[in-house]
Structures are given as C-alpha cells and as structure tokens.
Amino acid sequence: MSQISQYILPVAIVLIVGYGAIKKVPVFDCFLEGAKDGLTTSAQILPALIALITAVGMFKSSGALDLFTYALRPVANLLHLPQEVIPLAILRPISGSGALVIFQDILQQYGPDSFIGRVASVMQGSTETTFYTIAVYYGATKVQKTRHTLPSALTADIVGFFMSALAVYWLL
C-alpha cells in the first residue's frame, strides 16, 4: 500500500505536464506564469500564519492544555473515549506538529496495536489541522467575516474524534 503512495505524486506531475504537451500547450511558459502567482499567494498567507502559529505556540507552552485535558475527562469517560487520547484530540485541530509529537508519544507509551494506540491512530488519520486550514485559506483572500466556517469545522472534528473510538470498538 505504501508502495502505491510513492507513485502518486510523480505520476500526477508527469500526467499533468504530459497531457499539456500532447495538447500542444507551451507547458514551460504556462508553468512559470502559474508559479509566479504561487509566489504572490505565499506572501499573502504569511501574516495569517504568523498570527496563528505564534498564538498556538504561546498557548501550548503556557500549559493551558493540561487544564482542558482535566476538564474534558468526565466527558471522555461518558463517551468511552480513553482519557490518554484527550490531549491529542485537543491539539489536533490547532497544531499539526504538536499533534504529531503527542501521537508518537502515545504510540511509544502504549504501543501502536493497543486499544489506546489504535484510537489515537484513527484520530490522527481521520482529521486535519482545522485552525491552520482556516487561517491559510482565508488568509489568501480579503475575507474578514468567516461566518459559520469555524463552528462547522469544529463540529466535524468533534464527531470525528468520537467516531474514532467507536469505530475501533466496532471494527477492530
């Protein structure tokens, strides 16, 4: 399976460029034109990245996470979510790299094939870094009012977390 995934990226790139060449598109000039736009976009999203990553970094190092973990313990018990994965559930939407570190800790401490390890794996594999996505996507536009984006995205995250535990109960 991981063999296949190594092929996807190069094949996709060659497919796009090759198809363009067959259709007699000036592929190199088109690429440069598009890449120039990419550079502008990168500069546009930088302010949003700085704001979000700084805030998340300060939040993480203040130890606020411990309190949230403690506060959510009864909720987790009620829903059969092992409490060892609560820090992962809290960190997953706000920090991709932070979640990765906690995920690796959990795998090391409880083993990847234990119940806790499996729930953490499913959580890690079935959600994305919500805050980062929102900041970067809207950062490239002039949108200030994101309306229902954050509540909807968090709804998806919360359902995803509880379903991770349930799915491991039911399927594995």
């Binding site: 796009i16 198809y19 598009g34 736009d37 990419g38 976009t41």
Partner: peptide, 14 residues
C-alpha cells in the same frame, strides 16, 4: 505553492 500553481495553470490551459 509555486509548483502546484504552475501545474494547475498547465492543467487549465490543456
């Protein structure tokens, strides 16, 4: 970002 913006442009034109 530049790589995929470039590829996207090719995919659009073709």
């Amino acid at each position: 970002m530049c790589l995929w913006s470039g590829l996207m442009r090719i995919a659009e034109v073709s």
